[in-house]
């Protein structure tokens, strides 16, 4: 009992001494009030410590926890100012997303427009036109990488006649076909994923499309959309069915 009392008194004396030294060390008067408040609180806590210990067993650990939580929290909450690089990176990211969305929209719209145009001008039933845009680094505008025209299977023979008119003039251009084939294989690689069609089937489908139609479609696209004919691939819908 006496030991405990002695320890308590020693604590109080030490804390009061500490407070006195702090008061002495202070550089100026303006801080004194604030420091005295804190020192007074610490003295109060020391005097109260037996009461606290009686009330709540481990008040020392609670005090430590309180201090630790308090000292740690400002570091965790500290707001990190984004650097210029971060902002620029975010801007690039947003711009890329925006471009991608714009490209997707453009592809869809172009495809619709091309379907309408081809159907109007040649009378061929077009199932779909897929436009692939490619955007090179630093280029403001996307360029058309490839246009894949998928023809519907049920075409009327009479429609072919309009296309057949062109054949007479441009039959020589058949020689172009081997040049285009690699591009078509590329398209097949992207489309073949869902259709899982082997490449030779695509070539078969390719060959099944008559040259006349192909040429007609190319000329339409070149006239209306000024697309380089070598970028246009035409296929029958057989490739997608298989």
């Amino acid at each position: 009992m006496l030991d405990w009392l002695a320890a308590w008194l020693r604590q109080i004396i030490a804390v009061v001494l500490l407070a006195g030294i702090v008061d002495l060390l202070l550089p100026n008067k303006s801080m004194q009030r604030y420091v005295r408040l804190v020192a007074g609180l610490i003295i109060l806590l020391t005097i109260l410590s037996p009461v606290m210990r009686a009330l709540q067993g481990d008040f020392g650990t609670k005090l430590h926890e309180s201090f630790d939580a308090w000292l740690d929290s400002p570091n965790q909450v500290k707001y990190k100012m984004p650097t210029l690089q971060d902002i620029q990176r975010d801007a690039e990211e947003l711009k890329r997303k925006q471009d991608k969305a714009a490209d997707a929209l453009t592809e869809a719209r172009l495809g619709e427009a091309m379907v309408l145009e081809i159907e109007q001008r040649t009378g061929l039933a077009v199932q779909a036109v897929q436009v692939n845009l490619v955007r090179e680094d630093g280029a403001a505008e996307p360029a058309i990488e490839q246009v894949v025209v998928t023809l519907a299977t049920s075409e009327e023979e009479s429609d072919k006649l309009t296309a057949a008119d062109d054949i007479g003039v441009t039959t020589e251009e058949i020689a172009d076909v081997p040049d285009i084939e690699p591009i078509t294989i590329d398209a097949e690689a992207s489309q073949g994923d869902q259709a899982s069609a082997p490449v030779d089937q695509a070539e078969e489908a390719m060959a099944s499309v008559e040259e006349g139609k192909m040429v007609a479609i190319r000329s339409v696209l070149q006239e209306s959309f000024s697309i380089n004919p070598s970028l246009v691939a035409v296929r029958g819908s057989a490739a997608e069915e298989s």
Partner: peptide
Amino acid sequence: RSGIPSIY
């Protein structure tokens, strides 16, 4: 020596 918490 006086046993006050080091946190003080």
